[in-house]
């Protein structure tokens, strides 16, 4: 069992967790994730290891509350015991490419952070482009600034940084400064697809990290499978990082919606339950 050490809200519906799980902390490398199970009735969900401290035996997870399990996780208190297995997935291939552009959107900034760090450490010139709907949803800014040489921010309405999407900023960057040596894009599938579509004709190597639905995370179920070129790959063991130019994003997006109906039902039930509980405790007071 792993123990929750601390938890902190870092943006609306974004929580940072520090979890004590020494074996995982010791072995973690950038690009890897863990499978988390909150309790006996829970669902196993994959979460990227945003940071690790081998000495303390802890890992950091940064999680966006999007549905039942992530919302329930946000209610945990320090000291809670959860099940954590990992580190899973193939670590990021890190080398000195030259100039490395890290593009992150929404919750994708969390998995991007350790990769940006590793790329900087390997000697790359790291330029990060981070975007979100609003300023407060552009998470982990101090951490990403420390892991990058240059920063570009975007928000949908332009209230912070440039107006528009990260792709707009990436296009401008390429136009002004020429072709970078590698692009790493992590975020919603639609964003990774847009980035890949932009870099493909320019032949800029592009790495994306895919978030397909997983169960075991060990290559046993095939539920996380996606199409890469003509091949079927398992995201949990062959990935989660792949060549963005070869990924069938349309299929990925369709497969991500496999259980939407059930997910909505679970979330509705969860929210109702907690609203009732909140009302009850209000009445008691």
């Amino acid at each position: 069992m792993a123990r929750l050490i601390s938890k902190e809200t870092i943006a609306p519906a974004f929580t940072r967790y520090v979890v004590h799980v020494p074996e995982v902390a010791r072995k973690h490398r950038a690009g890897q994730f863990v499978m988390v199970l909150l309790h006996d009735h829970g669902e196993r969900i994959p979460l990227t290891i945003a940071d690790s401290d081998a000495e303390e035996g802890t890992i950091t997870l940064i999680v966006q509350e999007v549905g039942k399990t992530t919302m329930e996780m946000a209610l945990l208190e320090p000291g809670a015991e959860i099940e954590v297995a990992g580190p899973l997935g193939t670590p990021t291939h890190v080398e000195n490419w030259g100039t490395c552009v890290c593009v992150g959107g929404g919750a994708g900034i969390a998995p991007l952070l350790p990769i940006a760090r590793a790329m900087k450490e390997a000697g790359n010139h790291v330029i990060s482009i981070l975007g979100g709907r609003t300023e407060e949803l552009v998470i982990l800014r101090p951490e990403m600034e420390a892991a990058s040489h240059e920063m570009i921010y975007t928000t949908d309405d332009g209230s912070f940084g440039k107006k528009g999407f990260v792709t707009t900023a990436l296009a401008e960057l390429i136009e002004e400064r020429g072709r970078p040596d590698v692009v790493i894009a992590i975020g919603p599938a639609i964003m990774m697809k847009a980035v890949s579509d932009m870099t493909r004709p320019l032949e800029i190597p592009t790495i994306v990290s895919l978030n397909s639905i997983m169960i075991d995370g060990t290559g046993m179920c095939g539920g996380c499978r996606i199409t890469i070129g003509a091949e079927t790959k398992f995201v949990c063991v062959d990935g989660p990082e792949f060549d963005g130019h070869a990924v069938d994003f349309d299929l990925l997006m369709k497969r991500q919606r496999m259980f939407v109906r059930q997910e909505e039902e679970a979330r509705r039930r969860f929210e109702e339950l907690h609203r009732c509980r909140a009302m009850e405790s209000a009445e008691v007071k």
């Binding site: 009735h41 829970g42 669902e43 196993r44 039942k68 399990t69 169960i215 496999m258 259980f259 109906r261 059930q262 997910e263 039902e265 679970a266 039930r269």
Partner: peptide, 14 residues
């Protein structure tokens, strides 16, 4: 994961 007892258990099966 006991999806037969969804939503008592969180994992769905469609």
């Amino acid at each position: 994961m006991k999806a037969f007892a969804f939503p008592e258990y969180d994992t769905p099966v469609a």
